[in-house]
Simulated scan of single mutants.
Amino acid sequence: MSRLIDKEHNKRQRPMKIIVAGLCRTGTMSMNIALRELGYITCHLTEQMDDPKRYFTLWTEAMNCNFLNKGRPYGREEFDRLLGDYDACLDMPCCLFWEDLHKAYPDAKIILTNRSVDSWMGSMHKTIFPYIRSWHTQALKLFDSQMTRPIVVMMETSFKVLCNNDYGDRCRQAYIDHYEKVRNTIPKDQLLEYNFDDGWEPLCKFLDAPVPDGPFPKTNSADMFNANVEAEFWNTVCGSLKSFGIYFFPIIAISAAAWRWAA
């Protein structure tokens, strides 16, 4: 069966140096900013928002192939096509591929951004899980094929892989299992466990990089996440109204009212 990735012609432009295996909402946005400041070209969800239909559809295909037995799995060649412009990758869904990426790029260093499972579950239930499950997101997904649908399908598939879309005890255990498997698989000298308040020193020592001036970046709190989601929601609404005009207005109006009600 033909795969979308087979139509991609991108090649690796630079060696893959860093794979961040920590799950989303464990400081990955802050780590992304830090790695950028250290000179790395990072693949993070935010870097792929310029072309969400391409990137997130490819990531969904990759998860279907590698984890859900729906096609020939991605390996080094496919990851080079998808990630060839980057020398570091992190956040969903990259972190789910940590083992495949480690096999494809065995010399890359692994960073495990860390957070207590209770804190992580609390954050997820304030941010990503409500976004995925809200009916106004699901409604907009039906009509916005350029932004909302690729992102939401990718996120739904990510959590199908992680916990079969069970956002309770099964998700909690999946988090624990994910971290234990990384710790038990990656050689100690190739792995950095990084906690949110560790600062620059352990990261720069691990990467043999000079410590920058100024504090380690801290961003993307639950409030910031939700504010960004709401802003993106309204941008999408405005764009959809321009595209669909009066026929789309009743659905958008209902979705917008529901967003305000749920906020």
Rank of each mutant, 00 (worst) to 15 (best):
E99C: 02
E99F: 12
C89K: 10
E99V: 00
E78K: 09
M63P: 08
N64V: 00
R72S: 07
L82H: 05
G75V: 07
G84D: 05
C95I: 07
L101E: 06
F67M: 13
R76W: 00
G75R: 15
L96C: 01
C94S: 14
F79M: 04
R76P: 00
D85R: 15
F79P: 08
R81F: 03
C89S: 08
E99W: 00
H102E: 04
C89V: 15
Y74C: 00
C94R: 08
R81C: 06
F67Y: 14
G84A: 11
P73A: 01
N64D: 14
Y74P: 12
N64Q: 14
M92A: 13
C89W: 03
D85Y: 06
L68A: 02
W98E: 05
C65Q: 11
K103D: 12
R72Y: 02
D100H: 09
H102D: 06
F79K: 05
F67S: 07
L96V: 04
Y86C: 15
W98A: 09
G75F: 03
N66K: 08
D80M: 07
L101D: 11
C95T: 10
D80Q: 13
Y86A: 14
C65D: 15
G71P: 01
A62W: 07
F67A: 06
L83I: 03
E78S: 00
E61T: 13
K103S: 13
F79S: 04
F97N: 12
N69A: 13
W98C: 01
C94L: 02
D87L: 04
D91E: 14
C95W: 08
Y86V: 00
M63T: 07
L82M: 14
E99P: 00
L83N: 10
H102F: 07
D100R: 10
D100P: 01
Y86D: 07
P73Y: 04
R72N: 06
Y86I: 00
L96K: 02
L96M: 03
L82G: 08
G71A: 09
C94Q: 15
L90M: 11
E78Q: 13
E77G: 01
G84M: 13
L90K: 02
W98V: 10
D87Q: 10
D80A: 12
D91C: 10
D85L: 12
A62N: 00
D85H: 13
H102Y: 15
E77K: 09
A62F: 06
Y86H: 14
R81P: 11
L83T: 07
P93W: 11
C94T: 14
C95H: 05
G71D: 10
